[in-house]
Amino acid sequence: MISFVLKRFLQLIPVFIGATLLVYFLVFATPGDPIAALSGGKPMSPAVEDALRAQYNLDKPFWVQYGLYLKNLFTFDLGMSFSGQEVKDLLARAFPVTARLAVIAMAIEAVFGIIFGVIAGMRKGKIFDSTVLVLSLLVIAVPTFVLGFVLQVVVGVQLGWAKPTVSGQATWGELILPGLVLGLVSFAYVLRLTRTSVIENKTADYVRTATAKGLSRPRVITVHILRNSLIPVVTYLGADLGALMGGAIVTEGIFNVPGIGNLLFKAIRFGETPTVVAIVGVLVIIFVVANLVVDMLYALLDPRIRYA
């Protein structure tokens, strides 16, 4: 197990370096003045310009610049936004909000996705299965932001069940509706994946053998079919964390949630490239770490991987 963790960790290093290098390269290694690129074409005060030069060490060779950028990332020295605030402070305020939102979305997609997926898979071809499948297709086909707007207007404004926008505190209760919107598309994917996986596993030889041993139906379903079907689902959920980050930009924008996505959304709207680069860098770190965690979980779920 330890050697497995170590191996995975070593494999992540080139990915992490590659991803941050990619981000960095995209912003700084393009033709033209990087300062002009960073400003998004807007005029900047000389003070801001100097600060940027210092932040990104633009007078040094590329590799040194990149190295210092990595160092800054790890020490959370992320520079200033154009409005003169520390990006670090902005992130510190926004992060817990997005974390809450992601937890809600993850919980919704995992719990409901797996439950519905198992029921649909066990009743393949029956009415429940067909209905759920069609609904999942609809959820995938309608863009998140359209769903968000519709739910905001219907649930928030017309029915008045929830506040259409989120306050500065962004409490758990306020985040349920945005969390639902954020998790909905992935919910559909989790459902479909679980369903496929259950259908495949329920005809597996070891399931038949388990039945032949005299186990009760519920035990066969939970201990053998569900347990084995979870392996690909967990992998998907891990990879989905990244998609949630992307989705958060849209969802937080719609519901005015003061999270990282919103921060990024505004930074893009106002052309604040340095802030965008800083935030994306942090998100890549989170994503890479999350993937490591998922790998561990995966190994825990599948002994064949652990000992391979």
């Binding site: 494999q11 590659g18 074409g41 994503f287």
Partner: peptide
């Protein structure tokens, strides 16, 4: 495989946001 992982590590929307910040693309 590692090269793919690098691009995979950037979620589509995040990556696209960065790409579209490129002067060549933005303009």
């Amino acid at each position: 495989a590692r090269l793919g992982d690098v691009f995979f590590a950037l979620p589509l929307i995040l990556g696209a946001i960065i790409m579209m910040q490129l002067p060549v693309f933005r303009d």
